[in-house]
Design a binder for these strands. Sequence first.
RNA 1: GGAGGGAUGGCAGAGAGGCCGAAUGCGCCGGAUUUGAAAUCCGGUUUGCCGCGAGGCAACGGGGGUUCGAAUCCCUCUCCCUCCGCCA
Length: 433
Amino acid sequence: MLDPKWVREHPDDVIEAGRKKHMPCEEALEGFLAADRELRALLPEVEGLRSEQKNAAKTIGRASAAEREALLERQKEIKARIQDLGRREKELKERREACLLRLPNPPAQDVPEGVDDRDNVEIRRVGEPRVFDFEPKDHVRICEDLDLADFPRAAEIAGTRNYFLKGDLVLLEEAVLRFALDHMCAKGFRPLTVPLLVRDFAMVGTAYFPGGEEQAYRCEKDSLNLIGTGEVPVTAFHAGEILDRGNLPIRYVTRSVCFRREAGTYGKDTKGFYRVHQFQKVEQVIVDIGDPDRSLAHHESITRNSEELLQALELPYRVVNVCGGDLGQPQVQKFDIETWMPSREGYGETHSASRFHDFQARRLRLRYRGEDGKPRFCHTLNNTVVASPRILIALLENHQQEDGSVRVPEALRPYFGKDRLGLPPSRGSASGG
RNA sequence: GGAGGGAUGGCAGAGAGGCCGAAUGCGCCGGAUUUGAAAUCCGGUUUGCCGCGAGGCAACGGGGGUUCGAAUCCCUCUCCCUCCGCCA
C-alpha cells in the first residue's frame, strides 16, 4: 500500500508507476482521489457535529429535568444528521482503501523498461553451462530410468502438475533443503516454521490479495488460504507490532510447503517438476528500518546468499534485473536468479529476490520506533534460498553421468550420505547384480 | 463438537451508562538529591486521522445495534482460559 498523503500529492508518479509496470491504474487512482477529496470535505462537518454531541451529552448529565427536555430535542436532530454523514463517511473510507490497495508500488529507477520476462536484463552470469559429450536426458527421463519419481500415478490421484518423489530423490530433496536451511542459519537468520493455512489479512498484507485470489487454494469453510510461499506467514509474523529499533534488522529463514493453483498456465511447462501445484521452499525474509539505502544493501546480500548456495551446488546460473512489466504490484525491484537447465537449453527461474520498501509493512501495520520516538513503517525483503522440486531439475540434469547415474555435489554429500544417485539394486545393473 | 468464563495503554490491573483516552502499580524517558550507583522525590510516557495553526475527531479485541450519551447494555465474529467429548 502506498502512503495516501504521497498519492494525493504525486498522482503523476502513480500513473508513471502503472505505465512502467504495465499495470494500468488510472481508474483506481481516480477512485482514490475522488473519495479522498469528498471525505476530507466531509470531515469538518461530521467532526464538528460529533463535538457538539459530545459536549451536549456531558451537559445533559448534569442538567435539571426542565432543561433536559430542550436539549434532548436538539440532540435528536444532531443524531440523525451524524448518522447520515457517518454512513457516507464509512462508505468513502472503504472505497478509498479499496482503491489504494490496487495502486502499484513505483519501481526503482534502474528497473528496466519492458513488458515481460524476455525484457529482463542480465546482470551477471556465473559458471559455464556444461558441454555434454553424450546425449543428456531431461529430468523426467532420468527419474524414469532411475525410478526416482512417479508422474502418472500423481496425476491419477491428485491431478496434473503433481508428483511423487521416490527413493534417493526424496533423500536428495531433504538434503538440499536442510543444506539451504543450515546455510542461512550460519548467516544469522533465525529459523521459523509457519502455518500453511492463513487468514485473508496475511494475504492482503503481503499484497497477494486483492488480485492474486486465482492463484491461491482457498478453504472456504474456514476462510483460510493455503500459502504460496513462506513469505506470507513470516512477513505477517510481526503484523501490528511496533518493533524495537535495536532489534532490527530481523532476519528469518523458513522452510515450508507451498501451494499454487497455476491457473491460466494450462499447456505451459506441463512436463516434470518445473511448474507444480505443491512444492517445498526455503525462504529468507528481512524486516528492517525504513531506509532505502539499507534496503538496497539487504537486497544485494539476500541475492548473494542464494548465489552462494547455487555455487556450492555447482550449478551455473545468471542474475537478471526484472523489467517493469514482469514486476508485481508490490515490488520496488526484483532480481531473479535463473539456473541452467540443459533440457530447456536455457536458464530457468529458481529464485526471486524482492524488495518492497514499506509497501507490505503499511498493509501489515508493521512498524518500529524511530529515533524521535515516533512509529515508522518498516521495510521488508525476501528471497528464495532454494525451491524443490524445481532445483532438482538442475541437479539431476546438470550432474547426470554418461552411465545414467547422477553425481551429488560435494556440499550435499554430508547430508545425502552418498556421492551419486544410481539405479536401485533390485532393478539396476549399474550396481551389479 | 458441547458447557461456562474472559479480552482495557509496553506489562499488570481498576472502571459496570454521562464527571473516562481512561485510576493505581510496574516498566521506560527526563530532572533533583548523590563522589558514583541504589533508594527516594518531581515531571513526562497510546495510536491513527483532519487542520497552516489554535484545536478537533476516532479508538477500551473486530463488526453491528440500543441510547441524547457506551469501555460499561444487546447481537455477532475472532482470540484466550476452564471443564466434557473426540483425536495425530
